[in-house]
Every structure is written in structure tokens, then in C-alpha cells.
Nucleic acid binder design. Structure first.
Length: 831
DNA sequence: TTAGGGTTAG
């Protein structure tokens, strides 16, 4: 025996149900592997049964009905007959139920037998076990197993395998141990059953122990057992041991090759294209290339290497393809950045009448999410519902993401709420989905709720950090940072970059810099994030020298790098540097400027007053300018009060984005600053007609780890009276010192100032709320969804001077750090 | 005349 029996042997007929056994409620939902076709009755068996004359013997009658496949009648007979059927009749009925996958009748027959038997004989017990395990009824199977005084290796195999399949991996290993203690000699089927659970946990030590048993019991030459061993080692991350098993095999089948490829792939060892091709060639030579599962593996192998052409060749040469073959192609295209091709393959699959499985639908949904194809996504949703796939967590998760990425977050919430079980992916997708839909508030709310339910992973943290960064929730972000450190995953995936971004966006350049320096595997994103941080804080010179350092280190800049750099030049009025960088993009770095770069250049030229040059620049663009490019010109015209050119720009802007409230407001500001009240009124009327007149300005401020949101003219906050009193006080002090802001009033409408209508003032409420609820000297950090208006900008500068506090306002456009009466933005655009 | 191992996933 491999181990001394420390637990009582599980061999008595009246064995107490051990406490370690799972309760029925604890059983996880099972996704049963694709069904093996139920065996059909041979025609000989049917005719033999048909020739049996019906007798008064209910057992014989029951057997005959079963052999004719008349399940309903058989069940009726069983339940209505007063007499107890014999063991053979029961066995026939259970087998029929198993073949038919008739769960409900099977369970009824099971209850019938259970009521009338104190114990089950070997044949009857095994038939019941087999059926129950096939149905995923692990708990019922355990009850039957406990009522079997005699058990053979088959009974044990079913139990070990069944528990493993139901996801009760630890329990499966426990059963295997008990089998050993009971002195049952394992057979060739036992090892694959138990090794599956070792790999699934994964439990390498136990796997090695089972490996020793394999050798001790003399199964070291069995292909099936060795295949299972190889897979177990691969799943436990021991590619070397897996390879050793593979090399020791004197006989192998296509499963061996498949396990080898899959094992290498899982352990990330298949990055070598020539090795992959060699594996392919060898397998073809040995005649395995016709096996469907093997070809599916090859497709996946090539897809993971980004070689979709090769994958397609394998796919097209297959004589028969199953749903997995199609799914492997769909997911391959989707993962390699060809979601449109993925959907083409899916359409072709439909034309070929291949029924998609849950993973096909999940993969196709992922492609829809990439493309924002809500139309196809909705059809897939309907299909998933009709096929009963909504209970599969992968399908629901893929659906969530599709809806979130198609800007239908409410639909995603609906799907999420209907999910009976949610895993870390479901929660992470919702958090990321909220951020994607600019509903960061809810992202953090979901994150907090998630912690009570599911253990977060690096993807969750990245999504939650994005939510904090977007709302400027520094304290919540720091809390998440602490979680990350506790989980020991601070350097996992994109987490280091997400942390740099958090601190940059919350105005904590020092922390960001510390994170950047500590990040051992910096990539272009790390550099870009830090660079954007310097730019946002108005450190244009630092940004440029940082860029030089980046290039010297050997990091290759990308288009994002240049957006940040051109932005720095624009903010700092560095026209020459801007032109130099713009030209270097194509000349030095082979980066084709995109619309964002053009918009930055227009902004740069406009800010230094070169409006005509900016206009020329737009006219000479090799690509069609978008609203942002014209918008930059419009903004420049607003700053320099150039109404005519501004009107021209606004014509293009509003043609391209007719329903954007922001651009309308910009035009209003242009007219207001130039004192053109007639034209201003006209734009305001257009806005009213289009329903764009409601101010959706919103500012967030985090106090003691809770993010508070303020809307324009928000009177709903519990502390609003206090806030207003403080605001008034500040106003009085400003007046007394003779620096109260001048509001530009419209002469026709003396009651309402320009700022009251358009600027929102929500940042004023949020700033004051932050000031009165935090300790003296603490930095107050606000995030706003629109750009800060001139009046608020002036007032906040003054407030920072009066109260001697640092105030950071991150608006939709830039970051303002107010200190001692001035702002880091250099008052650009706030002249 | 019952069982096992390989492939597709967010």
C-alpha cells in the first residue's frame, strides 16, 4: 500500500457518510464533456427482446420494454407494479436511461430502487453509479456507492472519474486513496481517471505518487496511461517530466502527439516556429494528420504562433471538421486581431450546418466585441438562449463584454444580474465595462462588492485602477495598490503600468516616478504613461529630456509617444520643437502621423497665434481632418477671438459632429468672448432644439476613500448648505481684496451669466466639499468630465491662494494644479 | 457489458 491507512477503509456496507464529503449544494455546476454517442441496441438484441412473449412477470416485461427502448412505459410499469423487479430489470432500465440521457426518469428509477433496497448488488450498483455519474449527480452516486457492500475496480473507477469530472478534484484524489487503502488493485482505466484530477488541481506531488503507483502495478508500458501521465505533468507545469514520459514511450498514438503539443503550448514552450513545424511534419509522417482532434491542436498551435495562414491550410485539408475545428479558427482569427475574419468563418460554419457549441458562441461574441457588432452579438445572444447556453459562464462572460464594448452597459448589467454564478472574469469584465462606458463610479462600486464574493486577479486590479485613475480616487487607488502588494502580483501583466497611470492621473508624479523606476520590465506603455504624466503637469522640458532618455535606452517610441510630445510642445508654446518632432516621426521613426497628431499640431499653431498657418496646415493634410482637428482650430479662434475663422471651423466641426454638446459650447464661448450676443443666442436656440442644452457637467472628489459626485447646480448633497456658505465666504474675501471675478453678462439677459449656463460650477462645489472635509494642508483632487471654464479657473486660482491649499483639477482636457494663486497649465486658453 | 487519456474559452 502506498500509504498507511490513516482513514477508515471505505468498505463497509453501512459506512457513515463521512464529513469530508461534499453536500449536494456544494457541488459546482458541471460542464460535462461532449457526450459519447449512446450505444444503440444491436438489431439482434432488439429482435430477441421482441420475440420474448410478455408474461405476468413484471421483471421480464420491464426488461422487454427496456430492450425495445420504451422508456415511458417501462417507468410506468416500474412505478405502478406492486411487485419488486429483479436486479436485471433495474439494470436494463438504468442503462436505457443512461443511453437516452433521460435524467428525470433515471432519477425516478433511482429513487424507486433506493426506497426498496437496504443495499445494492455489484451489477445493480455499478449500473446506477454509471448513470448517475454521467448525469453529473455526484451526490446521488455517493449515496449508492455507500450502499454497496461489494465494490470492484469498476465501481471505484466510476467514482474517481466522476468526482474528477464534476470538478471535485480533491475528493476524487481522496477516493483514490481510499481505493488503495481498501486493497483494490487498480487497472488501466484507474490511472487516467485519477491523473486527470492531479493535473486539474494541479497537484504535482500527488501526480508523482500516482506515477510511482503506475510503475509499481506494472502499467508503465500502457499508451493510455502514459498519455495521461504526460498531460498531468504538463498541467502541473513540469514540461521536462512530460517530455521524459514522451521520450520513454515505445508506442505512441495520435493522442500522445496531441498531448505533447498541447503540453508544450500550455507551458509556453512553443514559441519556436521551426520546432512546431517539425512536430507537424513528424506527426504527418506517422499518419496522425487525419485525426480531427489532432488537427484541431495543430490549428491552435499555429494560431498561437500567429501563423493563421498555416492554420488555415491545416483546416482546409481536413476531411471532416467538428465544432472545435471551426471554433479554433474563429478564436485564432479573433486573437490575432482579425475579428472580421473570425465572423466570416462563423458565417461559413452556419452555412455548413455545423452546430456551434458554447465556446464557438463565446469566441464569436469576442469578435463582435472587438468590432462593436451589436447586431450579430444580439443574434448570438438569442442563439445562446435557445441552445440553453446561458448557464455556461464563458458564454455569459463573453456576452457581458460584447454588450459593454458595444456601449450597451445596461444590457451587460442585465446579463450579469441573471448569472447564477459569477467568477472573477464576470466581475472584472463588468468593472472594465463600466470604465469603458465612462461610468467609473459604478466600476468602483462593483469592485468593492466583488471583494466579498470572489478573489480578484491582476485583470480585475487593472480595471479597478483604471476606474480610480479616471475619477481621481487616489485613496481607493492606494487601497487597491495595497491589495496588489498583499497578493504579491505587483509585477504581473500590465499592473505596473496601471499603477504608474493611477498616480499620474491623480496628480502624484512622485509616486508615479517611484513606480516607474521600480518597474523592472518597462515597455513603451510604461514610458508613454510617465511621459504623459510630465506633460499633464506642465513639465514640458522634463518631458522632452525624458523622451531623449527613452530613445537612448533603446525603447522605440510609438504614435502614442508623439501625441504626448506634441501635446507638451503645444502646452509649452514650443513651436520649433513641435515641428521638429512632427517631421522626425516619418523621417526617423517611420510612424505615419494620425488625426491625433494633426490635431496636436493645429493646437500648437493656434496657441501661439498662428491661426492662418493652422488653417493652411489643415488644408494640406494628406488625410481628411476630423472634428477634433477642426475643433482645435475653433478653440484657437476662441482664445484669440477670431470670430470669422472660428465660424468656418465650427461649420466643419458641426457637420462632422452635429450632436456634440461640447463643440456647441465652444462656439458659444467664442461668441460670448467676442461679445456677439445675437449669434450666441442663435447657437443656444439650436442647442435647445437639438436637446443639447442640459448641462451634464459632473465633478468627482474622493474624501476618506469615498468618491462623491457633484452635478451642475447640485443641491442634493447633504452638505450643500455648508458648501454654499463657505463659497459665499470665499466670495466675500475676494471682493474685499478687490479681486472678485468679472462675469461676462449678456446684455439681453441680465439675470443669467454666461458661466451659470455653461461652466457647470460642479468643480467649485466639489473643491469646497473637499476643502471642508479634509485636514488642513491636504491636497484636494477633483476630476471633471468637461473642461474647466474660465471663471472657475480664475476662482480656483484665488481659492488656492486664500486657503493655502494645493488643488488639482483634472478636466476632460488637461490637468490643473492650483498652488498659491497660479496654475501649472500656464493659463493656456484661460487668458 | 458499463470507465480513461488529447483539441476549442472569457
Amino acid at each position: 500500500m502506498p500509504r498507511p491507512p490513516t482513514k477508515p477503509a471505505l468498505n463497509s456496507p453501512f459506512l457513515p457518510l463521512a464529513a469530508s464529503l461534499p453536500s449536494p449544494r456544494a457541488l459546482p455546476p458541471t460542464r460535462l464533456s461532449p457526450e459519447k454517442r449512446p450505444r444503440r441496441l444491436s438489431s439482434a438484441a432488439v429482435s430477441a427482446a421482441a420475440s420474448t412473449s410478455f408474461s405476468a412477470d413484471p421483471s421480464a416485461e420491464l426488461r422487454a420494454l427496456c430492450s425495445h427502448g420504451q422508456l415511458a412505459q417501462a417507468l410506468w410499469l416500474l412505478e405502478s407494479s406492486a411487485e419488486q423487479p429483479d436486479e436485471d430489470a433495474y439494470v436494463a432500465l438504468f442503462r436505457l436511461c443512461e443511453w437516452r440521457r433521460a435524467v428525470e426518469p433515471g432519477l425516478r428509477a433511482c429513487a424507486h430502487a433506493d426506497d426498496r433496497h437496504a443495499w445494492f448488488g455489484l451489477r445493480l450498483g455499478n449500473a446506477m453509479l454509471s448513470m448517475l455519474v454521467r448525469f453529473g449527480e455526484t451526490w446521488q452516486a455517493w449515496r449508492v456507492f455507500a450502499k454497496m457492500p461489494e465494490r470492484d475496480v469498476f465501481s471505484w473507477n466510476i467514482m474517481v472519474g466522476g468526482y474528477g469530472k464534476a470538478g471535485l478534484l480533491e475528493e476524487a484524489l481522496d477516493l483514490y486513496h481510499r481505493m488503495m487503502w481498501a486493497g483494490v488493485r487498480p487497472d488501466v482505466y484507474t490511472f487516467p481517471c485519477v491523473l486527470r484530477s492531479c493535473g486539474g488541481i494541479p497537484d504535482w506531488r500527488m501526480g508523482r505518487e500516482v506515477h510511482a503507483h503506475v510503475l509499481r502495478f506494472g502499467f508503465g508500458g500502457e499508451v493510455d496511461v502514459l498519455n495521461a501521465l504526460m498531460t498531468m505533468y504538463a498541467k502541473c507545469g513540469d514540461a521536462v517530466a512530460a517530455r521524459k514520459v514522451f521520450d520513454s514511450m515505445t508506442m505512441m498514438d495520435c493522442i500522445s502527439w496531441n498531448a505533447m503539443i498541447a503540453g508544450h503550448f500550455e507551458n509556453g514552450l512553443l514559441s519556436d516556429i521551426s520546432f512546431a513545424k517539425e512536430m507537424h511534419g513528424l506527426a504527418v509522417k506517422r499518419g496522425f494528420a487525419t485525426d480531427v482532434a489532432f488537427c484541431n491542436s495543430l490549428i491552435q498551435m499555429y494560431a498561437s504562433l500567429g501563423m493563421m495562414g498555416q492554420a488555415r491550410t491545416v483546416f482546409s485539408r481536413m476531411d471532416t471538421r467538428d465544432a472545435m475545428s471551426w471554433t479554433a479558427m474563429i478564436s485564432g482569427y479573433e486573437k490575432n486581431g482579425f475579428p472580421d475574419k473570425a465572423l466570416e468563418v462563423y458565417a461559413l460554419m452556419e452555412v455548413n450546418n455545423v452546430s456551434p457549441d458554447d465556446i464557438t458562441i463565446a469566441s464569436a461574441l469576442a469578435a463582435c466585441a472587438c468590432l462593436g457588432r451589436l447586431d450579430i452579438g444580439v443574434k448570438l445572444h438569442e442563439l445562446a438562449e435557445s441552445k440553453g447556453f446561458m448557464s455556461y459562464i464563458v458564454v455569459a462572460n463573453a456576452l457581458l463584454e460584447m454588450y459593454a464594448k458595444s456601449k450597451h452597459i445596461d444590457k451587460a448589467i442585465e446579463v450579469f444580474k441573471c448569472m447564477p454564478e459569477k467568477d472573477v472574469v464576470s466581475w472584472s469584465s463588468m468593472i472594465a465595462g463600466f470604465c469603458f462606458n465612462h461610468r467609473n463610479f459604478e466600476a468602483l462600486y462593483y469592485f468593492r462588492h466583488m471583494l466579498a464574493d470572489v478573489k480578484p486577479n491582476s485583470v480585475t486590479f487593472i480595471a479597478a485602477l483604471a476606474g480610480c485613475a479616471a475619477t481621481g480616487a487616489l485613496r481607493s487607488g492606494k487601497e487597491i495598490h495595497a491589495h496588489v502588494l498583499r497578493h504579491g502580483i505587483g509585477s504581473e501583466g500590465y499592473l505596473p503600468n496601471a499603477l504608474i497611470d493611477l498616480y499620474v492621473k491623480c496628480g502624484q508624479t512622485g509616486y508615479a516616478w517611484a513606480q516607474f523606476c521600480a518597474h523592472g520590465a518597462k515597455d513603451v506603455v510604461s514610458w508613454n504613461t510617465m511621459l504623459a504624466g510630465f506633460v499633464a503637469h506642465g513639465h514640458g522640458d522634463t518631458a522632452l529630456s525624458f523622451f531623449n532618455k527613452m530613445v537612448k535606452t533603446g525603447e522605440c517610441p510609438d504614435e502614442v509617444t508623439f501625441v504626448a510630445l506634441l501635446c507638451a510642445c503645444s502646452r509649452g508654446g514650443m513651436v520649433n520643437e513641435g515641428w521638429e518632432l512632427f517631421h522626425s516621426m516619418t523621417e526617423k521613426y517611420s510612424i505615419v502621423p494620425n488625426l491625433k497628431h494633426y490635431a496636436c499640431m493645429v493646437d500648437l499653431l493656434c496657441r501661439v497665434g498662428q491661426l492662418a498657418e493652422a488653417h493652411n496646415f489643415i488644408n494640406e493634410m494628406p488625410i481628411a481632418p476630423d472634428a477634433a482637428v477642426w475643433g482645435a482650430l475653433l478653440n484657437g479662434c476662441r482664445i484669440h477671438r477670431h470670430v470669422e475663422l472660428g465660424e468656418l471651423a465650427s461649420k466643419y466641426v458641426l457637420e462632422l459632429e452635429p450632436n456634440d454638446a461640447g463643440y456647441h459650447v465652444l462656439l458659444c464661448d467664442l461668441y460670448a468672448d467676442a461679445g456677439r450676443w445675437d449669434k450666441l443666442a442663435r447657437v443656444r436656440k439650436t442647442m435647445r432644439d437639438k436637446g443639447l442644452d442640459h448641462d451634464s457637467g459632473c465633478s468627482w472628489v474622493e474624501v476618506k476613500g469615498v468618491v462623491h459626485a457633484f452635478l451642475t447646480d447640485d443641491e442634493s448633497h447633504p452638505q450643500i448648505r455648508e458648501i454654499n456658505t463657505v463659497l459665499e465666504g470665499i466670495y466675500e474675501r475676494m471682493k474685499a481684496s478687490g479681486c472678485a471675478p468679472v462675469e461676462s453678462h449678456s446684455p439681453e439677459d441680465k439675470e443669467v451669466s454666461k458661466d451659470d449656463i455653461f461652466c457647470g460650477h460642479s468643480e467649485r462645489l466639489a473643491v469646497v466639499f473637499g476643502l471642508i472635509n479634509t485636514a488642513p494642508g491636504t491636497l484636494v483632487s477633483i476630476t471633471k468630465n468637461q473642461y474647466t471654464c474660465q471663471s472657475c479657473h480664475r476662482i480656483l486660482k484665488m481659492i488656492s491662494n486664500i486657503v493655502r491649499r494645493d488643488i488639482i483639477v483634472r478636466d476632460s482636457n488637461q490637468l490643473h494644479h492650483f498652488k498659491d494663486g497660479s496654475c501649472t497649465c500656464g493659463d493656456e486658453g484661460y487668458a
